[in-house]
Design a protein around this nucleic acid. Structure first.
Lengths: 215, 215
DNA sequence: TGGAATAAGTGACTTTTGTCACACGGCAGG
DNA sequence: CCTGCCGTGTGACAAAAGTCACTTATTCCA
């Protein structure tokens, strides 16, 4: 009966040992999200680890005015490192996580998973690897803001989009501007420049990535 | 004999259990650093966890041109979360860590500390807390670049300096500019403005922080 | 089918930040 | 003591990014 659930999880988390998967299937609750649904809100108290099974989740940092800056994506097989850190100490989320495709996420109560650290090496390794992966992505994002100009940041943004969502970018210039914390007109102009070099093709409400390798 | 060493470490890491401190004293090597000494270099392969016992260490992110951007400080009692993540998987450091005062750091081989996670709850808690603390600081730094203008970033920078080093900032405008990845003239002008509001007093080669609370 | 709403394009302008050139002044080493 | 370097001050300018106002184009649906 639960075997389906186990297989389903194992498919996306093959590095976890069988005995652990059994426990995950027992303790974890699968939540279905639609695009725009929030998996995590800034300020929310967390008691669960959040793992993404399927779909795509964007993680944002917010400021006081409600501006949302894209930090990174979570794909199927990824864990939200921040949720784990918060859950472990029952603290507030510092970020907003929002599904952008239909998604399945696995919620694992922290008081259960805590014991797994000792009992299952693969869980411990998974946690460390998740922390590390998220930290690395955050550093990449930091680099792009600190060391690069807006046109380079835009290319970085589009490349990352391509990696997880493919060459079709179904976002308006306004939306892209918001995720980069810039303004629509500036992004429009920069995209136009990219189009003139043949790197992208612009349409209403979406754009196609042709080739960003030159940047 | 080793009791001195244990006491010394315990003083700065009181949350660690006595049995663990004994093992740390056995396995850990204390390294003395002078100002400007590097505790960690970008690209270096790490086999050890780095804990700061005394002194102050600055952690920088570097770009290809060698520009160094200040991410955060490590004080006595802090662990370098990045060193731990790297050491756990024998990967390369993504950052540069540099002592800015005489400092003592504790190097703990990763293959030893790995077993502690299972045996000592206080070690596990310490690791999680360190990850969390560093991640939070990085988010703060990210905020300041993404959402704030340079004058606000400068105030943020000075406030952080004050927290760990006090009201005397023994840095030239040039050095401050580099850590913010800006230019000397711009920082000079912004500092001048701050001086006019009475927030700081400027001198040759150093400045005094009077009151930054208004910003 | 004809507005209304929304997305995108564009020129003019402002603000912020960076760059260049050079002046000033103090301090250190000869 | 003087001289040369280094840190700082400053004006003028350039470049990057943001803002404003308005136009054009597309879609939706009443």
């Amino acid at each position: 009966m639960d075997q389906d659930k186990i297989n389903h999880i194992q498919e996306k988390f093959p590095q976890l040992e069988p005995a652990l998967l059994l426990e995950i299937a027992k303790a974890g609750v699968i939540k279905h999200l639609e695009p725009e649904d929030e998996a995590l809100r800034t300020g929310q108290y967390l008691k669960s680890n959040v793992l993404v099974i399927n779909g795509l989740v964007k993680v944002y940092r917010e400021d006081e005015e409600g501006d949302e800056f894209l930090m990174y994506y979570l794909e199927g097989g990824n864990a939200c490192a921040l949720s784990m850190m918060c859950a472990a100490r029952n603290e507030q989320s510092q970020v907003l996580a929002k599904a952008i495709t239909p998604a399945e996420v696995l919620m694992i109560p922290a008081h259960v998973s805590e014991q797994w650290l000792v009992r299952f090496p693969s869980w411990h390794n998974f946690i460390i690897a998740s922390y590390r992966a998220r930290f690395d992505e955050l550093l990449q994002t930091l680099d792009s803001i600190v060391f690069k100009s807006l046109d380079e940041r835009l290319v970085f943004y589009l490349k990352r989009h391509q990696k997880v969502l493919g060459k079709e970018v179904r976002l308006s210039h306004q939306q892209i501007a918001e995720e980069l914390n810039s303004s629509r007109e500036v992004i429009s102009r920069l995209l136009k420049k990219l189009e003139q070099t043949g790197a992208v093709i612009l349409h209403r409400n979406y754009l196609e990535i042709i080739n960003l390798d030159l940047f």
